[in-house]
Amino acid sequence: MLDSAADALAAASLVAAHLPGGASADPVYGPDGRIPALPADFTPLAIRAVDRILAPASELCDLWGETSDAEEWTRTVTTLRGVLTRAAG
């Protein structure tokens, strides 16, 4: 489950990278090539994924909560959700 959550978060980040206010894909950890335009219906799916990742029962959220970077991680993921939500209208 943990790997799936991390993959979902990475995918949501790539969706947001195409949206106004979205951060560019990381040159080290992101894809090697250019990301093609993504269908608009990916945005609501990305929001649902981020919501599940931020939920109290999320193992990924729980593990990050145990680190010294917990606040920064939560702020980053919450910002990501904001970008996705604004684009979804």
Rank of each mutant, 00 (worst) to 15 (best):
R81W: 03
G30Q: 03
R81L: 07
P39C: 04
G89W: 02
R52K: 14
L38S: 12
A37F: 15
S4Q: 12
V28H: 04
S4G: 13
A25W: 04
G33A: 09
V83K: 02
A6C: 09
A25D: 04
T78I: 13
L9C: 00
M1K: 10
A57S: 15
A37D: 15
D51Q: 01
L14W: 08
L14K: 06
A17V: 07
R75A: 08
R86G: 05
T79Q: 11
S68D: 12
P39H: 05
G89L: 04
L19N: 09
V83Q: 00
T85N: 06
L2F: 14
G33K: 11
L84M: 03
R52N: 05
G65E: 02
G82E: 03
A46I: 07
A70I: 08
R48L: 10
G89E: 01
A87N: 01
L84G: 03
A46L: 04
G89S: 01
T78N: 14
L38P: 01
A5K: 00
S24T: 13
E59L: 15
T74P: 01
A70V: 00
V77I: 10
S68A: 14
L80F: 04
L2Y: 15
P20W: 08
A25S: 10
T85L: 10
V15H: 04
D41I: 06
V15W: 01
L9E: 06
T67D: 11
D26R: 06
W64A: 06
G89H: 05
R86E: 05
P44L: 06
P20L: 09
E59P: 12
S58G: 13
A11I: 03
L9Q: 02
L38H: 11
A16R: 02
A37P: 14
D51W: 02
P44K: 03
L60N: 04
P36N: 14
A12D: 06
S58W: 00
T78W: 13
D51H: 00
R86A: 08
I53Q: 06
Y29L: 13
R34S: 12
A23M: 02
I47F: 00
A17I: 04
R52Q: 02
T76R: 07
M1E: 09
A70E: 07
H18A: 15
G65K: 06
A11C: 12
D3W: 12
A23N: 07
A87P: 00
G30D: 04
A8W: 05
G21F: 08
R34A: 14
D41P: 03
A12G: 04
P20V: 09
A25L: 10
A17R: 02
E66Y: 03
D32A: 10
I53A: 03
A12M: 07
T85I: 08
E71D: 13
A12L: 07
T78L: 14
P31L: 02
T74S: 13
W64T: 08
A57H: 15
E72V: 08
G33L: 09
L2C: 13
T79H: 10
E72N: 04
S58Y: 04
P44E: 01
T78S: 15
C61S: 14
V28Y: 09
L80G: 03
G89Y: 08
A37E: 15
L84C: 05
P27H: 11
P31W: 09
G89I: 02
E59S: 14
R34T: 13
W73N: 09
P56K: 14
A37R: 15
D32K: 07
R81G: 05
T43Q: 01
